[in-house]
């Protein structure tokens, strides 16, 4: 009596083909997603332009994001901060009228968060701002963006607009600057 594994392999052929097709599909899909899909850049309730404010008019980041130097969160400015200037400045533009409608209705502006970290990462803005690290190091060239797009940083220090943050961004910087115990997991995860 001959015993052969060939019949068993023949039965498995469709299954093996399916696995190969799925694997190739996954690889292609990952590549296509990374290459062609643009970075996250949601439309905000008010078409606020960082290019006009931080770029053309050179308003410092910390003028509006005041909490960045004293708290873990950089904070989104309150409507009153916007109105502080826009009671006088560019009052006739349609977007400013939209802003004033929020002000008059005493409602916060439902901004959409673009740069978001998972909940198990406890990044603190305070320490990094006090260490004189430029906001653009992680957030990319915000002063050139009309609408904020996610942005990361390559190992060589160049901005990667459209790429989300990964842990390598943090670790590369902590290694380069030789942060004391900066690669311990409990520095950020706790």
């Amino acid at each position: 009596m001959n015993i052969s594994i060939v019949p068993a392999l023949k039965v498995l052929r469709p299954a093996a083909m399916l696995v190969i097709v799925v694997l190739v599909g996954l690889v292609l899909g990952y590549w296509a997603n990374a290459t062609f899909v643009p970075g996250y850049s949601p439309e905000q309730p008010i078409a606020f332009s960082h290019k006009i404010h931080a770029g053309d008019n050179e308003i410092p980041c910390l003028y509006c994001h005041t909490q960045a130097r004293r708290s873990p969160s950089a904070g989104v400015p309150a409507v009153s901060k916007c109105v502080g200037c826009h009671l006088e400045v560019a009052t006739e533009k349609p977007q400013i009228r939209l802003l004033m409608s929020y002000w008059e209705n005493r409602e916060p502006i439902p901004w959409i968060k673009v740069h978001d970290l998972p909940d198990f990462v406890h990044f603190t803005h305070k320490r990094h701002v006090l260490a004189n690290i430029e906001c653009q190091t992680c957030h990319g060239p915000v002063e050139t963006m009309d609408r904020i797009t996610v942005s990361s940083r390559a190992v060589n220090g160049s901005a990667q607009v459209g790429k989300p943050w990964k842990m390598g961004l943090c670790l590369n910087c902590h290694r380069e600057n030789e942060v004391v115990n900066g690669t311990d997991c409990w520095t950020c995860h706790k």
Partner: peptide
């Protein structure tokens, strides 16, 4: 879970 530089036994949830 590993030992960190402060003599603590860590537990990293995302890992």
């Amino acid at each position: 879970t590993y030992h960190n530089q402060d003599g603590l036994n860590t537990q990293i949830y995302n890992r």
